[in-house]
Structures are given as C-alpha cells and as structure tokens.
Amino acid sequence: MRKILQRMAQNSMYAIISIVSFLLLWAIGVQLSDIKIVMPGPWEVIIDFVDSFIHPVGRYTMPVHILYSLMRVVPAYIVGSVVGITLGILMGWYRPINSIFRPIYELIRPIPPIAWIPISIVWFGIGEGSKWFLIFLAAFVPVTLNSISGARSVDPLLIKCGEMLGASKKHMFRTIVLPFSVPYIFSGLQVGLAGSWATVVAAEMIRSTEGVGWIIISSMDTNDVAQSLVGIMGIGIVGFLLATIMRNVEDRLCAWTVREV
C-alpha cells in the first residue's frame, strides 16, 4: 500500500514537472520570438480559461457553451448507438440481414461524418437538426462496425455448448451472442463518442452561434488566439471526461472481461 502511494506520488511529480516545463518552454518561446504578436503566453490563456467560467465568451460562459455542445451530442449519440448496436448485431449474426444491409452500409462507412456537413445543412438547415444528423452518423458507423465484428467473433464452441444444453436459437442469441459482443460494442461506443465530439466541434465551427466549436471559430474573426486556446482547453477537458465516463461504465458493466490468458 505504501509502495503504491509512493509510486503514485512519484508519478504525479513527474507529470507536474513535465507539464510545468512544457508551459515554461511555451512562455519562453513566446517571449523570445516574433510569434508573440499573435501568440499569448500560457498564463494569459489559463487566466482567460478560468475567466470564461465567470464572464461570457460571446453570449454565454464556458459551461453554457459546453452544455449547448453536449445537448447536440448526447441525444443523437444515444440514438445512433442504439440503432448501430441493433443493426450490427443482427448483421453479424444473421447472414440474410447482412446481405441486405451490407452494401449500403459499406457505401456510407468510408465517408467521414465531417464530409456530411454541407449536405446536412442543405437537408436539415443550420439548426440543431443537421448537427443531430451528423452526430447520429458519427456514432452509428463505428458502433455498427464493432457490433458486427462482435457477433461474428462469437466462439463457436460456446454456441455448441448452448445447443448441448438445450437452448433455442433465440435463447442463445440473447444469452450468448449478445453478452459475447458487449466488449466489442463498447470499443465501438468509445470510438463513436470521440468521433461525435470531434464532429460536433467541426459542425459548430462551420455554422453555429454557440457551443465550444463556436468559441474557437469566432476567435478567428477577432484574431484572438487566447480565446482559441481557451476553446481548445474546454474541448480537450470535455473529451477527456466523456472518454473516462465511458470507460467507467464499461468497467462497471463487464466485470467479467478480465482477459483469460
């Protein structure tokens, strides 16, 4: 126990040294070169970041911007994931369903969600609709892919085992195929979440009046690099939190996935 604490203290010390030296390099670099005309130093950015929680950037403070972005991400992400899991598992397990949907899915799959931005604006306008559509795609595509490979990888011995124990096809789908795919589905959910977050940022950068993506894009018009960096910090922190939450949910739900070696 003591050793672990010591190790943790040591590690965080290294982390602090590493980050502080990075900030120092940044500060010195900015001071010594011509870039200081446009590029602020680290302290300025950190102060601005804290300040963004109290004084609004544009119309809203940072938490409200984040909330706007999350309101775009969360519902569409959930819908995209649910559709993706359902379709993916069915495609992975039933050959005819795979044959029906595979060609159309393969058509959509290689097109990055960001490339849908222009057409989604044409279809759904510049409001929330187009963003929801984009996030839906950003979640749907990877979640489906991973669910397919999950259902495909089910250990045939376990299926034989189910048959041997007298389970029907339907029962086995629910009690073997589905649980077996869960770890695969989660890695799809993880990729989909990161993709959704990147996509909402991109979508907000192209057309919006609020959200974290807007924070960085509006800085371009005002040439305010500090604001851009504040936005990047916000995006990074939220992205990190989302990934962490997802990982915890996964650990909670699949206590059994400790790999058997």
């Binding site: 034989k160 041997m164 649980p179 869960v182 059994w256």
Partner: peptide, 20 residues
C-alpha cells in the same frame, strides 16, 4: 443429428460463459 439436452458435454477447454 445435432447436439441436444439429453447428451451433456464437459469440454477440455471448459467453454464456460465468462459473463455469467
């Protein structure tokens, strides 16, 4: 012709369901 409940099998590799 196919596996069935009246013929139980214990496998060499155990083949247990890890999620249960």
């Amino acid at each position: 012709v196919r596996p069935g409940a009246e013929r139980g099998v214990v496998f060499q590799s155990m083949a247990l369901f890890p999620w249960l």
